[in-house]
Amino acid sequence: MTRQTPLAAAPAVRLRGVGRRFRRTDALSDVTLEVPEGVVCGLLGRNGAGKTTLMSLLAGHGQPSSGSVEVFGADPFTHAPTTSAVSFVRDDQRYPDDFRLPHLLAVAPRFHAAWSTERAAELVDAFRLPGRTDVKKYSRGQLSALGIVLGLASRAPLTVFDEPYLGLDAGARQVFYRQLVTDLAEHPRTVVVSTHLVDEMEALLDRVVVLEGGRVVRDSTVDEARAAAYTVSGPAAAVDALTARLPVLASHRLGGLRSATVEGELTDEVDDAARRAGAQTGPASLQELVLAHGVEPEVGVPGVPASAAARASEGVPA
């Protein structure tokens, strides 16, 4: 068996100048980033920003057109032990005809050295996945749940989830979050997860990478990302005056009120000025920061419109 011992310091993921071209469009351009081992990294960005392409490269499902992809210090496309160290169930995963859940559960342990039969059984039970239905006939939510079973029970050193919540109701999503953090607490490993449900999943993440048009526009810890912006909200005129010379990432108006997301750290000066002008300052949520990068949540994403409206109305003087 060929065996490559990576440097202890090698991060779980290292991309250098990675580009991926499909015909005439660049799905990824000059992506350079590292994901340290043992963290949960959120991959954010609007549809078509390159999230799935990036995850395909991590799993060795595809090859970059330029640059290099390293997972645990080796190329996941050519180095078989590295390919097997990654679990990535695609959201449009293909399964052989007539395959059923028991077939997959019987075979999966052969492919993942750390496969947990107990975790798989617990998840199958919690999601109530049917064993007598062809996997090809599963609903969207059942396919997502199956992807979660295969990904989480694999305990693969790098586990990649592509919008794992598609079609899952709120209860099932909570099952996923709870099982994920419980399993990670007992068996730490590196996770990369793409999501539009930023508010809902923020607490699961250590790091965030925001993609826009195939480029990385933010790569930091969640805490850094949250500290990187703040909101000023209140009467529109006051907010406009306060933020006239500040780097405003995004601004929303609700009647006579305005809420602006400003890049940078909130200074006492701005804070005092805002209070005198009858406006309020507050920390930006990760969702607001991501929205400021032009990442729109999908219609019907729970919680988002409501909370955005609530934030905008906080500045109303009673």
Binding site: A59, G60, H61, A80, T83, S84, A85, V86, S87, F88, V89, R90, Q93, R94, Y95, P96, D97, F99, V107, A108, F111, H112, L150, S154, A156
Partner: peptide, 14 residues
């Protein structure tokens, strides 16, 4: 056709 994608998802090398 369908087993190749599943095998790679499960971590098999080409």
């Amino acid at each position: 056709a369908t087993t190749f994608p599943l095998a790679l998802t499960l971590g098999a090398g080409r």
